[in-house]
């Protein structure tokens, strides 16, 4: 196996215990036969692993830092979402793709509703016109009184 690949594995997954079983086996059998890679592993352990092993956690001055945090929080108190205006502003701060998508959906819905409403109104209006015309026609035929036969010429002859 190529020593460059082995060095890469050593510097990353092997030192960090993230190497899978197959690669681990391949690496270990390579190390048995390659002195250069074995030396590289020892050097890597000494130089880049051991110095970090005994590092201790630095602690802040707990109370001092807490007082600073508390003062800053109290200085600018958190605004809870109780105001409607804030909620509206927050909705505008939403990620752009979500905002754009929701705006498009709202526009499409509005256009659809308006088109449907207009079509329904037109249909109702036409029905009313037809009903009025029919009523007038029926009233005309039901009436015995003939006041006119149509145009002046028709009235003259009939």
């Amino acid at each position: 196996m190529d020593c460059k690949i082995i060095e890469t594995w050593i510097l990353t997954d092997y030192l960090d215990g993230e190497l899978g079983p197959a690669k681990l086996q391949a690496l270990e059998s390579h190390l048995k036969t390659c002195r250069a890679c074995s030396d590289f592993l020892q050097e890597a352990k000494t130089t880049i692993v051991r110095p970090f092993e005994d590092t201790k956690q630095h602690m802040p001055q707990q109370e001092y830092l807490w007082n600073r945090i508390k003062a800053k929080i109290e200085e600018e108190p958190k605004q809870y979402p109780k105001m409607t205006l804030e909620r509206i502003i927050r909705s505008f701060r939403a990620p752009k793709p979500i905002f754009a998508l929701s705006t498009c959906a709202a526009l499409i819905l509005a256009v659809f509703v308006l088109t449907q409403a207009r079509a329904l109104y037109q249909k109702t209006y036409n029905r009313q016109l037809a009903a009025t015309a029919l009523t007038e026609q029926l009233e005309y035929f039901a009436s015995d009184e003939i006041t006119s036969f149509g145009t002046d010429a028709e009235n003259y002859f009939l």
Partner: peptide
């Protein structure tokens, strides 16, 4: 703030570190 102090006590070490 009492609950937040508990979070602070448990996390301040690694955050600062």
């Amino acid at each position: 703030m009492a609950a937040f102090r508990q979070i602070y006590d448990k996390a301040s070490g690694f955050v600062y570190n």
